[in-house]
Amino acid sequence: MKNLFLTLLFLPLLSSCQGDEINAITDELKTTEVMYTMPEESAPHEGTWLQWPHQYQYGIDHRNDLDATWIAMTKSLIQGEKVFIITYDAVEKNRIKTLLQESGISLSSIEFKIYKTDDVWVRDNGPIYVKDKNNQLVIQDWGFNGWGKKADFLNCNTIPMQIAKDQKIKVLDLNTTMINEGGAVEIDGNGTLMATKSSILNSNRNPGMTQQQAQAYFKKYLGTTNFIWLEGKAGREITDMHIDGFARFGNTNTIVTMNENDLLYWEVPQNDITTLYNSKDKNGKNYTFLKLPLSKNNVVTTYGKKLGYKGSYVNFYIGNTVVLVPNYNDPNDIVANNLIQSLYPSRKVIGIDVRNLYANGGMIHCVTQQQPR
Rank of each mutant, 00 (worst) to 15 (best):
T87C: 15
T7I: 13
E21G: 05
V322T: 04
G146C: 04
K116T: 05
D188P: 09
P331N: 08
Q51Y: 04
E186I: 15
I273L: 11
T196K: 06
T257I: 03
G189F: 07
K219H: 13
K113H: 12
A336K: 00
F112N: 04
D118P: 02
Q371H: 04
L276V: 08
Q167W: 11
W49S: 01
M363R: 03
A336Y: 00
E260Y: 06
I200M: 13
G80C: 04
T301V: 11
T192L: 11
G189Y: 05
T288V: 09
G361D: 01
R236C: 09
N64P: 06
E231G: 14
Y313H: 12
V299Q: 05
M194H: 07
R355C: 01
N23A: 14
G189V: 09
Q370S: 05
N206K: 09
D27I: 10
K280M: 15
K165C: 15
N329K: 06
N145T: 11
S279F: 11
D118F: 01
I243L: 14
N298M: 14
I85Q: 00
G191M: 09
Y265T: 08
A151Q: 10
Y358C: 00
C366S: 04
A24P: 06
N283G: 09
N94Y: 09
T117R: 07
Y265K: 08
Q213K: 12
P53W: 01
P127M: 03
G223I: 02
F316Y: 15
S106K: 15
S109G: 05
I60G: 07
Y287D: 03
A68S: 09
W147Y: 07
Y115P: 00
F144W: 08
T210Y: 12
L324F: 04
E102N: 12
W49P: 00
Y358S: 01
Q51W: 09
R63V: 00
W266R: 02
P293G: 07
L276N: 10
F227H: 14
D244G: 08
C17K: 14
N3M: 08
G126W: 00
G19N: 13
I187P: 00
I110R: 04
N175C: 11
G235N: 14
K296T: 15
F246H: 10
G47L: 02
N271Y: 10
K30Q: 12
M161L: 14
L11C: 13
N329F: 12
K168I: 13
A151H: 07
Q213S: 14
I228T: 07
T74F: 05
S346Q: 05
L50S: 00
I139W: 06
I238L: 09
R355Y: 03
E186C: 15
P160G: 10
M1T: 13
I238P: 00
G183P: 03
Q55G: 10
N283T: 13
N271W: 14
Y344A: 03
L154H: 12
T176S: 15
V323L: 08
V34D: 02
E102L: 04
M1Q: 10
V91L: 11
Q101R: 06
L137D: 02
